[in-house]
């Protein structure tokens, strides 16, 4: 990975106009703000995840980067090329796939579809055929390469979409909600395929998703976006540390009475304690501690002193889903506060 920025956005905002068509020609009524001063820098070779709930602005940003939308304000660059002014040259450097959109002519085979798209990228003749077969092999579709697309399953179509996005061997690959509508097994297989065959080498990859497991599996860094604003950017571990102000520990214990559990709950440094029964004899204690300095050994001692047994004890990290919930939840609260007049 190099430090050279390949995808850059500077104060990119997008406000869709409320009036379109005839009325929009004569009167522009500003509508929904889909992106609000988005700043991102994604380095060469990086696999970057853009995470956010539905309607957060992920697809809007992707469409700006792939030159299908022109931002209301700000500037976006791909490999140093302004996506508005140098749209044609920028498009040569990117491969794009949208999970929820139709990319293919279903009455044609994968080979015929990809031969068509190859020509749009200036790849022709034998070179096109070689490249088409190569990318189909890369995504595991060699055996069904000559099958019409309407015989493909959703998972196969998604693989074909990846093949299409790789046709021009792009410097930048943008994948928008690639796992939409896939069953868990197909989604996991696709993740493996992306990890092993797509996110390799010097290629910069931007993945948008609201599937947290996907982001954790694939991405070097992530940005959380909600309400059109970037909420947090960084490596997942750093974001987790930043969010995890309280330390959460998990302790599996046995032989405790209600009184001893209450005593543990009242111990200094314990902000919260949840008890989850496991098998009738043992409990899982979820400890939310304000610090982990002496509290954990002290808790272990107390359990043993009150006649209990400690089966296991260890820290528990915030899951990606929890991080997502915290960040998106905070952004909703911020938005609510902004709506309340002072």
């Amino acid at each position: 990975m190099s430090d050279a920025p390949v995808i850059e956005t500077r104060n990119v905002s997008m406000r869709f106009s409320e009036q379109q068509g005839w009325r929009g020609l004569f009167r522009v009524r500003p509508g929904k703000l889909a992106l609000d001063a988005v700043n991102l820098t994604i380095r060469q070779g990086e696999v970057f995840g853009l995470l956010g709930p539905n309607g957060a602005g992920k697809t809007t940003l992707v469409k700006i980067l792939s030159t299908l939308l022109i931002p209301t304000a700000g500037e976006a660059r791909i490999a140093g090329l302004n996506v508005v002014r140098d749209g044609l040259r920028a498009r040569r450097r990117i491969g794009v796939l949208y999970g929820d959109e139709r990319l293919f002519f279903w009455r044609l085979s994968a080979v015929d579809n990809l031969m068509f798209y190859a020509a749009l990228y200036g790849i022709h003749g034998k070179e096109a055929r070689r490249r088409v077969l190569e990318v189909l092999d890369m995504v595991g579709l060699s055996e069904s390469a000559h099958m019409r697309l309407h015989h493909y399953s959703t998972g196969m179509k998604r693989r074909a979409s990846i093949a299409r996005a790789l046709l021009n061997d792009p410097d930048v690959l943008i994948m928008d909600e690639v796992n939409v509508a896939l069953d868990p097994i197909a989604a996991a297989e696709l993740r493996e395929l992306i990890k092993e065959r797509v996110t390799t080498g010097e290629r910069t990859v931007l993945i948008t998703t609201n599937v947290m497991a996907e982001a954790e599996f694939l991405c070097d860094r992530v940005a959380f976006i909600a309400g059109g604003r970037i909420q947090m950017v960084g490596e997942i571990a750093h974001i987790r540390n930043a969010l995890q102000t309280n330390k959460v520990f998990e302790m599996v214990v046995g032989g405790l009475t209600n009184a001893s559990i209450e005593a543990l709950r009242a111990a200094p440094g314990v902000d919260a304690l949840d008890v989850v029964p496991l098998d009738g004899k043992r409990y899982r204690l979820d400890l939310n501690l304000s610090s982990n300095g002496d509290t954990v050994p002290m808790m272990v001692r107390r359990v043993v002193e009150t006649g209990g047994e400690v089966w296991s004890c260890g820290p528990r990290e915030l899951t990606m889903d929890q991080m997502f919930a915290i960040i998106v939840g905070n952004s909703h609260k911020d938005a609510e506060r902004e709506r309340i007049p002072a």
Binding site: T67, R91, R92, R102, L120
Partner: peptide
Amino acid sequence: MLEPTLVAP
């Protein structure tokens, strides 16, 4: 199919 086509150069 219009947008996927217009993504091409």
